[in-house]
Design a protein around this nucleic acid. Structure first.
Length: 702
DNA sequence: GCCCCTCGAGTTCT
DNA sequence: CTCGAGGGGC
């Protein structure tokens, strides 16, 4: 099912379940068996679990269990407490705008935009200036009477100033109802959990659940202690008669002319309103406000999950009316979810170039922070056990560093006994060789040095950008060559015949020629890139450079003793031993011999390019830099090369020793850390200026 | 011997 | 980007 189908299905199931509920409870004429009903409910629960972004408080699943609470008396709402229609991207906002404009016959429209609080809805009633009732949303038509708890909220006044009625733009108001969202400030949430931790109590899972739980607590002293907050967004007068109903129509002058004045009146009454409140006269303005709000999200002391868009004029609201489900004059825009719940369908195994076997979670695809996530690494079996992840679990997925999905935790409450834990394999999934786990190591390895997965991984590494950077040789070609038995290792690439290549499926003379040129260029790669390409354990770009500076060619490097190696910068006994062992071992020796035979190594290797300082004494020289985020004018690697060429040092992580952080767009945790440590941050524009000042010019070849 | 810093390795999706 | 672990300063 694609996204739209899932959504339609959810809507259908909700309506269908509601219908059967009515048949069952009110008319006692069920159409389907209890089992069939349970199956529908189960399907809906599964879909909602996989798509938390479409959760809805009025869904039948939400009503099952805790929502309607026997411990509190149930009271009918004066006006049904509807929710707005949800939307998930800017196209849907545009469609909303178009529909509204059409319905308004080209009349000028003004929208309001306010944050959509991630809290719990609450209605409060005042009569003659005194708080008389606090009511939860419940099922939308009747809610739970939690008046005693509502009274404990410091932000909800028990009685209003004597002149309260004069704040309404029409006279004769004796009672009113205000609706809003109760929430827990993030700072307060953190404070509460700190206390709970100290007292050995279980921690509150998240602010929203904590708020919902608090409102349903019977101990009012405890409710008061939690320190809940509230923002109101709706206000209407009530009849003073026994039967409450919405009394006014705008045309009769007994309602607010627009949403703005409604908010202003709430504020005047001393009921808190969110400080973010804007108006927009067209779609671009609307979108700009939504973006602003999304940008502010992390700076707020409360969670918001989107924005609420309304047509400002109440007259137009009335004319636009409502569908059966939601008002036509408003829209809830939801930000992309940063956390999603989905089904872990399967765990598969991956064998990397070093032979390390990694478990990977295969997930039911789910939208998360703008992309669809279907896989996530589980790293190793320590992690699997620590988190007690099992096949068939509902899991919470987040995006680490906003890019790479990661399984945060399982939801054990969804387990039904069919979930199976996944033991570490005793055989390599690719070649069947027994797996080994070295002492003190977390990683599980395939014991076979020529495991096909390892060989493929080594070839990929050999061709990769920082290694030989072979143009025209991607992962798919490598797999193809291996499958056909054309090659067994990197050296065999050089012996591939053009005639053979151009006859391969998907290959022609052009691609064969491209690969030939790429291989020729590989022979001219800088010495350190060739060392890196060998794939020696523990030898990355940086260590390869150290080795290249010390040893002029492959022969000298092969003969180096571990003790000599350990003397080098950043190389200790462990890495020294690893390097020496690689060259003494059968596999390493064969690889080097074969590459020598293929003329891969040169008599005189190209020495690593020494830092060329333009003036030797520029702003960059001697400083330590970290580059993060996306730059416009250049790639991160180009920026690093530029800094290095001016005598600056570039490291990968921010620490006290970092002098400057160069931050592009969408900089993540590194920017946060740098700010914490008080390290100067240079944005791209300033960085380019400094480069120009230092006399750097783009040579094009990095 | 402890702690901080840096490096290597594996990682997703468009 | 994050994690684990090696290297080396203190």
């Amino acid at each position: 099912m694609d996204r739209d189908q899932v959504r339609d299905r959810i809507t259908f199931l909700r309506e269908e379940i509601d219908r059967h509920n009515r048949l069952y409870y009110r008319q006692t004429t069920p159409e389907i068996s209890d089992q069939e009903f349970d199956a529908l409910l189960q399907e809906l629960q599964d879909l909602e679990a996989a798509h938390p972004e479409w959760a809805d408080d009025s869904s039948p699943t939400a009503r099952v269990g805790s929502d309607s609470d026997e411990r509190f008396p149930s009271v009918a709402h004066s006006v049904p407490m509807l929710s707005l229609q949800n939307s998930y991207d800017s196209a849907e906002v545009a469609a909303f705008d178009q529909r509204v404009r059409k319905d308004m016959g080209g009349h000028e429209v003004l929208y309001t935009v306010e944050p959509k609080m991630d809290g719990v809805a609450l209605a409060v009633r005042y009569r003659q200036g005194r708080l008389t009732l606090g009511l939860t949303r419940g099922d939308g038509t009747k809610g739970d009477d939690i008046t005693a708890n509502a009274r404990t909220l410091a932000e909800i006044p028990d009685s209003l100033p004597p002149d309260w009625a004069s704040f309404f733009p029409w006279s004769g108001v004796t009672a009113f109802e205000a609706r809003g969202e109760v929430y827990l400030k993030l700072s307060q949430f953190a404070e509460l959990n700190k206390q709970r931790e100290a007292e050995g109590q279980e921690l509150l899972a998240n602010p929203r659940n904590a708020t919902a739980g608090t409102l349903k607590t019977l101990d009012t002293a405890e409710v008061a202690r939690r320190g809940l907050s509230v923002f109101f967004y709706q206000l209407f007068a009530l009849d003073d008669t026994g039967q409450e109903r919405h009394p006014g129509h705008v045309s009769e002058g007994r309602d607010f002319p627009d949403h703005q004045s409604e908010m202003a009146t709430l504020d005047a009454l001393g009921l808190p309103v969110n400080p973010f409140f804007r108006t927009a006269k067209d779609l671009p303005e609307l979108q700009a406000h939504l973006e602003d709000l999304a940008g502010m999200r992390d700076t707020l002391d409360y969670q918001i999950d989107g924005a609420v868009i309304k047509v400002d004029s109440r007259l137009w609201q009335e004319r636009l009316g409502s569908t059966a489900k939601a008002p036509r004059w408003g829209l809830a825009f939801k930000f992309p979810a940063e956390e999603a719940v989905t089904l872990l369908k399967e765990i598969t195994l991956q064998v990397g170039r070093t032979g390390v076997i990694t478990p990977v979670a295969e997930l039911e695809p789910v939208r998360l922070a703008g992309t669809t996530v279907s896989r996530a690494t589980l790293h190793n079996w320590d992690e699997l056990q620590r988190k007690d992840i099992r096949v068939g679990d509902q899991v919470v997925v987040v995006k680490g560093g906003d890019i790479i999905p990661k399984v945060l935790r399982v939801l054990p409450e969804y387990r039904d006994g069919t979930q199976l834990s996944f033991p570490a394999p005793d055989q390599c999934p690719v070649c069947g060789t027994a797996t080994v786990q070295q002492e003190g190591e977390v990683a599980l390895r395939c014991g076979n040095p020529v495991c096909p997965a390892v060989v493929a991984g080594q070839l990929r590494h050999f061709a990769s950008r920082n290694a030989c950077d072979i143009d025209g040789l991607g992962g798919r070609s490598i797999d193809l060559f291996l499958e056909l038995g054309l090659i067994e290792g990197p050296a065999d690439l050089f012996a591939l015949k053009s005639e053979v290549l151009s006859a391969l499926p998907g290959w022609g003379e052009k691609s064969a020629e491209r690969l030939r040129a790429g291989l020729q260029a590989a022979r001219q790669r800088p010495w350190q890139a060739k060392i890196f390409a060998l794939g020696i354990p523990q030898v990355g770009v940086s260590t390869a450079l150290t080795l290249a500076r010390q040893f002029p060619d492959i022969h000298a490097l092969m003969e180096a003793a571990p003790e000599d190696l350990a003397l080098l910068d950043d190389i200790g006994p462990v890495v020294g031993e690893q390097v020496a062992t690689f060259f003494q071992g059968e596999a390493g020796r064969q690889l080097v011999q074969a590459l020598l035979a293929a003329d891969f190594f040169l008599e005189t290797e190209q020495l690593p390019t020494a830092p060329i300082s333009v003036s030797g004494d520029n702003w960059f020289a001697g400083k330590t830099f970290v580059v993060t985020g996306t730059l416009e004018a250049m790639t991160r690697d180009e920026a690093k090369a530029a800094v290095t060429s001016l005598g600056g040092k570039v490291t990968g992580s921010v620490s006290k020793k970092t002098d400057v952080l160069v931050a592009g767009e969408k900089a993540g945790s590194k920017l946060t850390k740098a700010t914490d440590l008080g390290i100067p941050v240079l944005e791209e524009e300033a960085f380019l200026e400094k480069l120009a000042e230092a006399g750097w010019q783009d040579t094009g070849n990095v």
